[in-house]
Every structure is written in C-alpha cells, then in structure tokens.
Design a protein around this nucleic acid. Structure first.
Length: 881
RNA sequence: GGGGUUAUAGCUCAGUUGGUUAGAGUGCCACGUUGACAUCGUGGAGGUCGAUGGUUCGAGCCCAUUUAACCCCACCA
C-alpha cells in the first residue's frame, strides 16, 4: 500500500482522478427526500465568457465547505450552478471581436450579431465551469443553468409581464444615466462617482427687460444651451425682484422664466441655479414642479445636437470651451472659481456618464422594497456578518426606481410590442405579430433588460418557475447565499425583493458575505498592476486543496483578504503534513482495527478526548458559517495534537509494543485519522478522499461518510488532563536540555519526583513515550523525600520535579540562575493568584469553575515553588562543598 | 453630509457571547536528518493589543472621546 504513496504530497497525482470519481458516482446530484429539510445553495453565476479568478475560487470554496458538510451530515443537498449571460460585458467583448474585422455591430446586424454571441457562448461558456471543477466544487451539474436558457428566459418574460400588469413596471421619459461610450443606459449603482477638479463658472443671465438679471453658478456651462429656467430660493430676498420675470439665456437669446423653489441652497454659489432639466436629475425634479420644458441638447454619442444651435455636432468639452469663450466675449462671464466635485463615470468603461432624459423602462421600487425591508428586519433573512444588514437596509429604504432597459442586443429582449400605425403598445408573454387594436404589424422593443433583472430571479427561475415543479416546491426557499459584499445591491437585494414578490417568501435565510481577495500588499488585483494571481496556476503548482485552505485560513468574516503565495505554501505544507500522517498510519496498519473494546492507554484517551473537542468546535464553526475558524481548528488538531504528540507517543508501542498494545495504537490511529479526514474534508476534499479510499474499513466516498459526532464513550477529561501534565513534563525536560546545551543525541537518565499519587501513576504509565520524547535513557520515580546525591539539573512542572544527572555538564552557577528565574516567574504567578483569591468581588462574582481553577493553579504553583527552593538550597550547599 | 471597516509579534493576519499567562503563518536565532513528513523536528527571541478616559472583581474584546488609513452610500448646481 505504501508503495502507492510517495514521500511528498503530490496533488497532481490524484486531484483530477478524484473529481472524476465523484462526478461519476453521482453524489453531486441532489435527491429530494420527502420529509427531510434540504440544504440548498444557488451558486452566484459567473459570467459565461469569464475566466476563473481568485474571487471565484474563494466564493466556491466557501460554498463547497458548507455543501460538503451538509451532505456528510445526511441532509438532502443541492448546490445549483449556473452561468450568467452578463449582457454588457459579453456584448463588449463581441463588439471588440467584430471590431478586429473592421466592422461595427450595426454593420453585422442584430440577427448575425446574436448568432456570433451564441457561438461565443458555446465556445467559451464551458471553460469557466471546467475551471470550477478544478477547485473541487461539488455542485449538481445535472441542474446547471444559463440565464438565457429557455426556462430562465421564460421566467424573465413572466416576471416582466406580471410586474407590468401590477403597474410595477412602467415606461417613461426620465432622467437616466447614459454612457455615451457604451451607448446604453446604466442603473444608478452602475455609476461610479469620481472626485474631479473643475471650475465653477459664474454667468450673468440678463433680464428680458434689459435689467441686470441674475448671476448663476454652474460646473457645466455647455448644458446651459438646454436651460429652460433659473431657480432661486423663495425666501431669498436678493431675488424677490425677479418674481414673474424672465431672463435671457445668453448666446441662444431665449427668454426663460425665474422660478422659486426650496431645492435651491441660498448659500451655494450665487443662490441662483440654471435649470437644465434634460441633463440633471435635480433640475428635472424642479422642472416637473414648475412645468419647465425639457430641452435635450446632447446626442446619444455624447455630442451636442441641433438644439445646441451653433455648437451642434461638437463634443461636450469642446462645446464647453467655446461657450465660455463666447460668454467672455459677451461680457457675461462674471467669475471663475476652482471647484472640486464628483463626476459620475461608467463602471465598465470609466467614461463620464451623462444624465439625460430618455424614454426607458423602469421598475417601480417602493412597493417592492417595503416587504424586502421587512423580511430582513424580521430576520427571515439574516446577514453574516450582521453589519451588512445596515448597508442593505439603508439602500433598500432609500431606493429609487430601477432603470432596466439597456440599448444592447445580447440579453433578454423586452417583451413589449408597439404598433407604429396607431401607437398601441402591449406587453405579452408570447410574440405579438399584429396590433390588437388596428390589426397592423407590431414590432418588439429593441432593447434588452439589465442583466441583473434575470439574475434577480435565480433562486426560483433555476428550479423551473413559473412551473410548480417538484424541485421548486422542495428546494425553495434556499438556505445560504454566499457572495462578496460588492454585489449586495446588484444582486442580493434584487433577489430578495424578487423572491418575496414572486414566491411570497424570502429566497434564503442566510446571506454569507465575504470580502475581496487582494494582493499581498492589500491592493486590488488588476491587469494594469499585473498583480493578479491565477488560481489555476496555483492549483497546478500547489494543488486545489492548498489553494482552498489558503483562501479560508485566517480570514475575518466579511473582511478583505490579502492573498500571497506564502499562504498557499503554508497550506500546501499542511496538506503535506496530513498526507504524511496518513502515510504513516497506513504503513503501520495491518488491517482495520476496531477501536471498540481495546484497552486504552493514557495517550489514547487524550487524543480521543481532543478529537471530541475538535469535532464539537468545527461543527459549531461551520454551522456559524465560519470556515476560517474551522480551518484553524482542524489545523491545530491535525498538526499540534495528532501529529506532534499522538503519533510520536504511539511509536514505541507500534515498534516495540506487545501485539495487544500495537493493535490498540493502530486502532486509535485509524480512528483518529478517520475523524480528522472527515473534519478536514469540506476544506480539503481531494487529499482527504484520496486517503480515505486507501484506508481499510471505509466504504465508498468520504463525501457520503458520516460527519463525525463527539462520542461520549471516548470522553476522558481526567486522563486527558493527566496526559496534558505529562506533555508539560516532556516540554520541561526538553527546555532544560536545550538550555543546558545537551547534545540531542545524548540520552539522559530521568529522576521524577511526582507531585502526587495521580501524577505518579500517569508518569509511570507513560514511561516509554516519555523516554522517547525527551531523549531519556532510563526513568526512575523518586519518593517525596528521597535525596539525590548526584549532580543534577532540574525541570519543574506541575506534574513533577524532574532531576537530570548531567555529570560534567552541570554548571552550578548557570543552573542556579536558571532556577532563580523560574522561581521568580512562579512566585509572580502565586502572588497574582493570591491577590485574585483575596479579592471579594472576584470571589463573589466570578464563576465557581474559574475560582476553582485559580485555586488549583495556586496550589500547584506553590508546590513548584517549594521544589525549586529545595533545589536551590541543595545547589548552594553543594557549591560550597 | 450619512454609514462602515481596520489599527494586535519584523511582516501578513486570527482572537465567537469580557475570565486574568494574547495565538497562527511567515521571517529571525540556536540545535537536529538510522524511515510519516527538511513541504520536517526541538528549543528560543520578539507584543505596554493606535491613544485617552470610563464601566467591571476582571477589558485586546463593552462605552465615550480621539488619531490614522481605507471602504460604501448620498451627489449642492
């Protein structure tokens, strides 16, 4: 068996094979078990043409940990994967590909363009799901969905129609965010504000009657061409003279009214604001109140249109420059002040976004937001960590209508049909050919929906909705949704209101939020910095398990993680440790030794008790959605307890023990390893499975092995504590040896003076391990008052005073100094414990358990102090001899 | 303007409801390879837990104030 296992952990040898084995075994596939509560996760669908990046690796690992845990627990488990068509980003790539042929998308035409898009999807759509397999995601590929597949498209149309019928979707001329570069609308959250330094231009608008008029202040002089009024505050005495008057818009010489509105901040600028309702959301609202006309002066490509008069066709910035020059010439430019303000930019291309009026489709948010706020406030959906709940509520409570139409081709086409002849419009679930009013042909809306409109339906559209499928009935609502904080608004919030509206129930009870993966210096990974880490490279070099472990280890809930190769290396080393511990167990195992009925020794009871503790802790950690703590805990158990102590302690029995002792050690090793592998499996699935399949006495995949449960039959608190004392004794001896510079190869005799009967027994029963683990050649138990005449150094610990004859190596001065130091620290402990125990408040309020521990500690420290003092006396006497 | 996060060992970070001796990884120092593992072992050095005040028998953790860095939301022309 051991021939199959090379010395070093080589994940490349088995990872692909393990995954194939799993996928073929069918255990990823969810099964409905009536009467049993399922555990369900909907995978955040990666973009169909995307490449796996480190963020995917993190979110997949987090989900996979939860899924594998629940599957082992025996819950019917569904992890449904999918991909997203990602309207704008995919379209941009295809446009770019077409551009390489020297064509535009208009040259190609809508139909051919979509053909290309689908071909692109077919070609690249499979890569990301293959890459997800590489990191071990155990999702149900038989249920894989795509946001534009037939069923999900149907769900999109259905939701659109329902919301329209309820009056929750409407079409209207509103101020929207327009990206002149991408040539499409953007929703409010797709606009990224950037601070920019600019000017505040003060411009005089003369009175229509030739009076001095008013001075306005603006950051965008070019939009004045679209002004349809000037607003001042109703209580601003400076401007009451203008009531009912018009002023002249310079350059275009158009009379525009002065209106009075509380929106105006008297303290800012001149207290007079030009109203450009077609290009500013606030002006738009003021204009609505005062019936000011919308005058749009910009084209879709960002250039000025014919209403801009002499500036038609110019780019906005060029227009600005010329307008300012012209105003200067006219003597109407009063002042220019430097001014810093925020400018909206496109989240995709980074270009300045133009607010402008346009006829678009919107979702009326207020009625949808209310119940979506309620489900979170009522804790039907909770956020982990909870602080993100505030973010969510704040956004949802101040939400504005959602512009959902996009001027793109790749996406779900809006199911609205227009009759150009009579102006009729219908929204329908199936294509409408002829106008129901006049019978003439109808044409479908050209636009598609925001890509998030379809992903908002993911928790139920993937299960077959609007059909009442068995899957839908069984798996909805889902359990946990795992995602990064940066898409709470884009996706999580929209899933919640969509789920509540369409299904009447929140789509998931827990939202597990994680942070972003950054580079070792905390910078965002980006192409321009070239600091990106490709998860596939890591997998090839270190293995998927190492990557997974590195991603979740030492990660605070919801915080960003600084990822570095150091971390991966540490994780790989841990994998190697577990691998080699497994190899050791396998090499020393004859057959499957059952643990039941074996006569357990001290160390056996210790490790079994520690395993129970580990099982309890990790179960709690995973239930609390904290894989990081689980990883730390299993790391500690595996390395510091199982490997560092138990395996080493078991060696004498395996090598020199009588058959019965050997068999017991083998049984405990096997039992412990099986526990460890199962606890580690959700985090490191490949390694644990590959070992599991080699272990005697295991049947089938570890994926379906029972999640460990703490076994009261193997809970030995007293023995575990005694063993802990022996461990301390071993550490004490090692410490003394190192300090006295005793060659590691030099065996020493140990004389133990136990600190009581119980310790005497524990130490005596641990003789072989004790000798082996601290380089002892022989061990002798001293009586309490027995004197030793040899030259010795001593190690003092709660279990015993240990005397080590070192002959010439014993340097009295050095030993005295060492003991004095130890004495001081023990004495300090004693005085601290004494002061605590004489504190009435402490005695009255601290838990009894804690007080008892303090007393015990005080007692053992006092004993140690006595031992140390005796040793010191002895040394002094001897040094005077 | 509103909200949030972070500050703990040289570096990167953990530290669940307050429990008294603050941990890990990595780096550093010393020593060590006859077989689970040098992707290792043993021992060690290294921290007044950003600052100040408060609550408490007890504070890295709770409260207030404060300093610094970062993030989100809002978008006053």
């Amino acid at each position: 068996m051991e021939q199959e296992m090379p010395k070093a952990y080589q994940p490349q040898r088995f990872e692909a094979e393990m995954y194939k084995h799993w996928e073929e075994s069918g255990c990823f596939t969810a099964k409905r078990v009536p009467g049993r509560k399922p555990f369900t996760i909907m995978m955040p669908p990666p973009n169909v043409t995307g490449q796996l990046h480190i963020g995917h690796a993190l979110v997949s690992t987090m989900q996979d940990i939860l899924i594998r845990y629940h599957r082992m627990k025996g819950d019917p488990t569904l992890w449904l994967p999918g991909t997203d068509h990602a309207a704008i980003s995919t379209e941009a790539r295809i446009v770019a590909a077409i551009a390489k042929e020297g064509l535009t998308k208009q040259d190609v035409g809508r139909e051919k363009f979509l053909e290309r898009a689908w071909a692109w999807k077919e070609k690249y759509g499979g890569t990301i799901v293959e890459q997800l397999r590489r990191i071990g995601t155990s999702c149900d590929w038989t249920r894989e969905r795509f946001t534009m597949d037939e069923g999900m498209s149907r769900a999109v149309t259905e939701v659109f129609a329902r919301l329209y019928e309820k009056g929750l979707i409407y079409r209207g001329e509103r101020i929207i965010n327009w990206c002149p570069n991408c040539r499409t609308t953007l929703s409010d959250i797709e606009v990224v504000f950037e601070e920019q330094r600019a000017n505040l231009w003060h411009i005089r608008y003369p009175g229509e009657d030739g009076s001095e008029g008013v001075i306005i202040a603006t950051t965008r002089p070019e939009t004045m061409l679209g002004d349809s009024g000037v607003a001042v505050h109703p209580e601003d005495g400076r401007y009451s003279r203008l009531a009912g008057k018009n002023v002249m818009l310079p350059i275009l010489n158009r009379p525009i009214p002065v209106v009075f509105d509380e929106y105006v901040d008297r303290a800012f600028g001149t207290g007079a604001v030009k109203m450009t309702p077609a290009h500013d959301p606030n002006d738009f609202e003021v204009a609505q109140r005062h019936n000011l006309p919308l005058i749009r002066v910009m084209r879709d490509d960002g250039a000025m249109n014919e209403l801009a008069g002499p500036y038609a066709g110019m780019r906005a910035l060029e227009c600005r420059k010329l307008v300012v020059e012209e105003l200067t010439k006219l003597g109407l430019l009063v002042k220019v002040e430097p001014h810093t303000h925020n400018v909206g930019t496109c989240y995709r291309c980074g270009k300045t976004v133009e607010p402008l009026t346009s006829l678009q489709w919107f979702v009326r948010m207020e009625p949808l937001a209310k119940p979506a706020v309620a489900v979170v406030k009522e804790r039907k959906t909770r956020f982990v960590p909870p602080r993100f709940e505030k973010n969510y509520l704040n956004w949802m409570e101040n939400i504005r209508d959602w512009c959902i139409s996009r001027q793109l081709w790749w996406g779900h086409r809006i199911p609205a049909y227009y009759c150009d002849a009579c102006g009729e419009m219908v929204v329908a679930r199936a294509a409408v050919e002829t106008c129901p009013k006049c019978g003439r042909p109808m044409r479908q809306d050209e636009d598609v929906l925001d890509t998030w409109f379809s992903s908002a339906l993911f928790p139920f559209s993937t299960l077959g909705w609007p059909e009442e499928t068995e899957d839908l009935k069984y798996f909805y609502p889902t359990s946990v949704l795992v995602t990064a904080y940066d898409i709470i608004f884009f996706w999580v919030a929209r899933m919640i209101f969509s789920g509540v509206e369409q299904m009447g129930q929140t789509p998931f009870h827990t939202v597990l939020i994680h942070g972003l993966v950054r580079d070792a210096l905390g910078r965002k990974m980006s192409k321009s910095l070239d600091n990106g880490i490709d998860p596939l490279d890591i997998i090839e070099q270190y293995g998927a398990d190492a990557l997974r472990f590195a991603l979740v280890f030492g990660l605070a809930p919801g915080n960003d993680i600084n990822f570095s190769l150091d971390k991966v290396e540490a994780a790989r080393n841990f994998a190697n440790k577990v691998y080699n511990a497994s190899r050791f167990v396998l090499m020393n195992l004859d057959e499957a030794e059952p643990l039941k009925g074996k006569p357990l020794e001290l160390a056996d009871k210790w490790i079994l008790t520690r395993l129970n503790a580990c099982v309890r802790d990790i179960t709690v950690n995973i239930e609390a959605c904290d894989p990081s703590l689980a990883a730390q805990r299993v790391y500690e158990f595996a390395w510091s307890e199982f490997c560092d102590w138990y395996i080493e302690w078991a060696k004498p029995r395996l090598m020199d023990g009588v058959p019965e002792q050997k068999k017991t050690a083998q049984a405990v090793l096997l039992y412990g390893l099986k526990g460890l592998l199962r606890l580690l499996h959700p985090i490191m699935p490949f390694l644990t499975e590959s070992v599991w399949l080699k272990l005697p006495g295991t049947e089938g995949t570890i994926m379906l092995a029972d999640w460990p449960v703490a076994d009261p039959a193997y809970e030995f608190p007293a023995e575990a504590a005694a063993c802990g004392g022996v461990i301390e004794a071993i550490r004490a001896v090692r410490g003394v040896r190192a300090e006295m510079k005793v060659e590691p190869s030099r065996r020493v005799r140990l004389m133990l003076r136990p600190a009581g009967e119980a310790w005497a027994e524990a130490l005596a029963s641990s003789e072989s391990a004790l000798l082996r683990l601290c380089g002892g050649s022989a061990m002798e138990i001293l009586k309490a008052d027995e004197n030793v005449r040899e030259k010795t150094v001593s190690a003092v610990c709660p279990a015993a005073e240990i005397l080590i004859p070192l002959g010439d190596l014993v340097d009295f001065e050095k030993e005295t100094a060492r003991l004095e130091k130890e004495k001081a620290s023990v004495a300090m402990e004693i005085s601290r414990a004494e002061s605590m125990l004489s504190n009435e408040g402490y005695l009255a309020k601290a838990p009894a358990q804690l007080i008892r521990q303090t007393r015990e500690k005080l007692e053992s420290n006092r004993q140690m102090l006595v031992s140390i003092e005796k040793r010191l006396e002895g040394l002094l006497e001897r040094s005077h001899v």
